[in-house]
Amino acid sequence: MVITVRNVSRYADTNAQGDMLFRAMLDALRVRESITVDFAGVQNATSSFVNSSFVRLLDHYSFSVIQRRLRIIGVNRQIANMIRSRMQFEAAA
């Protein structure tokens, strides 16, 4: 299953937009073994968005499970690095 960020939240700027993506990912992970999140057309993301979407998944799944079941495509280096570093930091806390 592919979840396209632009279709879910349009942008990747606010906590509310992150919450929309979080809910879509959580719903999909409850019924699918793996999901893909597509950032096509999204040029930047805020830490608020990443915290409200990806980091919140750690309340439901371990970091290793998320790594195994979630694939991110169409993402630029800045967004990919932010997601990775925030997830690693929070998983280690």
Rank of each mutant, 00 (worst) to 15 (best):
M1K: 07
M1N: 06
V2F: 14
V2L: 11
I3K: 08
T4G: 00
T4D: 11
T4R: 12
V5D: 07
V5K: 07
R6I: 05
R6F: 05
R6Q: 09
R6T: 03
N7R: 03
N7S: 12
S9I: 15
S9H: 14
Y11C: 02
Y11K: 10
D13S: 06
D13T: 10
N15F: 07
A16K: 02
A16C: 00
A16H: 01
Q17N: 10
Q17M: 11
Q17G: 05
D19C: 03
F22L: 07
F22M: 02
R23Q: 10
R23N: 15
M25D: 00
M25Y: 03
L26F: 09
L26R: 01
L26M: 11
L26W: 04
D27Y: 06
D27W: 05
A28Y: 05
L29M: 06
L29S: 04
R30D: 15
R32Y: 15
E33L: 08
E33Q: 13
S34T: 10
S34R: 10
I35G: 08
T36P: 01
V37R: 02
D38K: 04
D38C: 07
F39L: 14
F39Q: 14
F39P: 08
F39N: 14
A40D: 09
G41M: 05
G41V: 01
V42D: 03
V42H: 05
Q43G: 04
Q43W: 14
N44F: 10
A45V: 12
T46G: 05
T46K: 00
S47A: 12
S47L: 06
F49W: 07
V50W: 01
V50N: 00
N51S: 14
S52C: 04
S52K: 02
V55W: 03
V55E: 07
R56F: 02
R56L: 13
H60Y: 14
S62T: 14
S62N: 10
S62G: 14
F63T: 09
S64W: 01
S64C: 06
I66D: 06
Q67P: 00
R68L: 10
R68F: 13
R69N: 09
R69K: 09
R69D: 12
L70D: 10
R71G: 09
I72P: 03
I72C: 11
I72M: 09
I73D: 14
I73V: 15
N76K: 05
N76R: 04
R77Y: 13
R77F: 12
Q78A: 12
I79W: 12
I79C: 15
M82R: 02
M82N: 06
M82Y: 06
R86K: 13
R86M: 09
M87N: 11
M87V: 13
M87D: 10
F89G: 05
F89Y: 08
A91S: 12
A92K: 14
A92G: 06
A93C: 15
